[in-house]
Amino acid sequence: MWGAIALALPIFPTWAQDKPAATLESVHAPEEKLNLLFYTRMIRSADGQFRLDQSLVSNFKLNPWLRLELGLRHGERSGKFMAYDGYKVELQTKSFFKIVRFVARMSDKISDYPTPSYAESNYLLIAEGKHPVSHAFTVLGALGTVWSTHRDNTTDGLPDMKGAGDPYLTYKVGLRYRLDKGFLEATTGSYDVFNPYALDSPFVQLAFDHEISHRWTFYSYFRHQYDWHTGAALNEFLCLGARLHFFKE
């Protein structure tokens, strides 16, 4: 059923992915000062359990070199409305030579259900690159480092580096196909908008982005997260949302 939904997504004016940065590229596009992304994810685990979360992500220009991205997330599970919450703070550099940019992120997840409760902080440093291979196709790639801390029996949401383990790699590889008013994108990797995944539980994702108007873009994705190989499913995600753009007058 989920596979059929994923293949059907491009029919609808939606997309996703994880990246909440600006979507449509044009040398004639007006300068974007701020965008706000709202999206809902429906998640089904391998044991048939469902959960739902909502995210709000803002991305705005600080200066010609840097953008700031702030995010909030609220999650619900069956029988528990306040199951988990999260937030992130992220700095993004400009794209140097229109090829590579650098990202520094701190994200925190606070889970209160199921027990025991826990809090987890993640710190990421990532280089994200893109390279057009034709008028329609662009290759995407990213490589970075993650430091994580995990604290049991607490719902303290303050960032914490105490007890951080050894850093580990994170990555993303994808191919984007440009459409008249958006794009299709297939990616695989171990991080996205909020919290990173372990290298042994990455994901594959199909995303679709469509510009509805000068101000609005629909956003959606289907994601399959797995354990070591794609046949060992962990979670399946269906994401639907919209991005509101504000441009410099």
Results as ranks from 00 to 15, higher is better:
Ala164Val: 11
Ser111Pro: 05
Leu91Ser: 09
Ile126Lys: 01
Ala4Cys: 09
Asp85Asn: 14
Ser55Pro: 00
Phe246Gln: 06
Arg105Met: 08
Glu90Trp: 12
Leu37Glu: 07
Thr149Asn: 01
Lys109Ser: 15
Ala104Ser: 05
Gly3Glu: 05
Met82Pro: 01
Thr93Glu: 04
Phe137Ser: 00
His150Val: 09
Asp227Arg: 14
Asp180His: 09
Ala83Lys: 03
Phe60Tyr: 15
Leu234Asp: 06
Ser58Ala: 12
Phe97Ile: 01
Asp156Phe: 03
Met42Leu: 15
Lys248Ser: 14
Glu90Tyr: 04
Glu32Asn: 03
Glu185Cys: 14
Arg176Thr: 02
Gly3Trp: 13
Phe247Ser: 06
Gly157Ile: 08
Met1Trp: 11
Ser95Trp: 05
His210Arg: 15
Ala232Met: 08
Val100His: 04
Ala104Phe: 04
Thr149Ala: 02
Ile212Met: 11
Lys94Gly: 02
Arg44Asn: 12
Ala21Asn: 12
Gly144Asp: 04
Val146Asp: 01
Trp228Cys: 01
Glu69Met: 15
Arg101His: 14
Lys33Gln: 11
Gln225Val: 05
Glu31Gln: 10
Gly165Cys: 03
Pro64Ser: 02
Gly144Lys: 07
Leu9Lys: 04
Glu120Leu: 13
His135Phe: 05
His224Gly: 00
Leu68His: 08
Ser45Glu: 11
Thr93His: 05
Val193Gly: 04
Gly48Leu: 07
Arg101Met: 01
Ala29Asn: 14
Arg176Tyr: 08
Lys61Arg: 15
Leu37His: 13
Gln54Phe: 14
Val27Ala: 13
Leu66Ala: 10
Ala186Lys: 10
Thr154Ser: 07
Tyr39Thr: 05
Ser213Ala: 03
Val89Cys: 03
Asp85Met: 12
Ser201Ile: 12
Ala207Thr: 10
Asp108His: 09
Thr188Ile: 07
Asp108Tyr: 03
Phe97Thr: 00
Gly129His: 09
Pro116Val: 03
Thr188Glu: 00
Gly163Cys: 04
Ile110Lys: 08
Tyr221Glu: 06
Val89Thr: 12
Leu206Ala: 10
Ala22Ile: 15
Gln17Glu: 11
Ser107Ile: 01
Ala8Lys: 12
Thr40Asp: 05
Arg44Gln: 14
Ala21Trp: 07
Thr187Gln: 12
Leu36Asn: 08
Thr40Trp: 10
Phe203Arg: 00
Arg105Glu: 08
Leu140Arg: 08
Thr155Asp: 00
Cys239Ile: 11
His224Thr: 11
Ile126Pro: 02
Gly231His: 12
Asp192Ile: 12
Arg77Val: 03
His150Gly: 05
Glu32Leu: 10
Ala186Asp: 06
Gly129Asn: 01
His74Ser: 13
Asp112Cys: 06
Leu244Lys: 12
Thr14Tyr: 14
Glu185Phe: 05
Gly129Trp: 11
Glu236Gly: 02
Gly71Leu: 09
